[in-house]
């Protein structure tokens, strides 16, 4: 018997510029599923391949709400629940404990700092944390339930993982007709996020971004 081999998922061959995995975590009611679907639809509109799996508790509010999104330039072969990821959108700390160790070296974490406990942060010091007071900003804009769209806007501004045009279009299309009155404020939330930064962590080679 030899000692257990030390192994880190950071060596994953899936850490490829052709493939970007994004984890979403929060609690029911924060719009985590809507945010993940919105980003997935935008990626499809950009012509990329997409796989999205959701895991959420059977309660209207407060249960875990997680999504696992892969966006790629080639066909995706991936388990539904990802083992490692390039970026995370963390809306709440309650269920973030499983997310932090999945972020690869040099990864990116966008944190809803209005809500997330400052003690809940990535385990790997090389992961860059972008603190976004998303709930405060969305509340100022008149719609606290649009906080996740501020974070989504910021993710797209920092990375260009989807195009801004596709993001704006998919956010509007994601709402059912009886929520049509929310399209305008949701757009302001996305814009607030997108205005927070320029492209700091390009998701794709610039030629194809």
């Amino acid at each position: 018997m030899v000692p257990r081999t030390v192994f880190s998922l950071a060596g994953s061959m899936y850490h490829s510029p052709m493939r970007r995995e994004i984890l979403f975590t929060g609690i029911g009611g924060q719009g985590v599923q809507l945010a993940a679907r919105t980003l997935a639809e935008a990626a499809v509109a950009d012509g990329r391949r997409v796989q999205l799996f959701a895991s959420y508790g059977g309660m209207m509010r407060g249960g875990n709400s997680d999504s696992f999104l892969t966006i790629a330039e080639d066909p995706i072969k991936s388990p539904p629940v990802l083992g490692s990821a390039w970026a995370a959108v963390v809306m709440h700390h309650e269920h973030a404990g499983d997310i932090w160790p999945k972020l690869r070296e040099g990864g990116l974490a966008l944190v809803n700092s209005s809500v997330v406990d400052p003690a809940s942060r990535p385990t790997d010091a090389s992961v860059e944390v972008i603190e976004i007071p998303a709930l405060d900003l969305a509340t100022e804009l008149g719609s606290p339930i649009a906080a996740q769209l501020v974070v989504l806007g910021a993710l797209v501004a920092h990375t260009g993982v989807v195009s801004a045009d596709s993001l704006v279009a998919s956010a509007a299309a994601a709402l059912p007709s009886y929520r049509a009155d929310a399209v305008a404020v949701n757009r302001r939330a996305l814009d607030a996020g997108m205005a927070m930064s320029g492209l700091t962590h390009p998701a794709w080679e610039l030629a194809t971004a």
């Binding site: 081999t5 192994f7 998922l9 060596g11 994953s12 061959m13 899936y14 072969k77 388990p79 083992g83």
Partner: peptide, 10 residues
Amino acid sequence: DAVVNDLRAA
């Protein structure tokens, strides 16, 4: 499949 690819890389 994911585990095989990860472990092969290591």
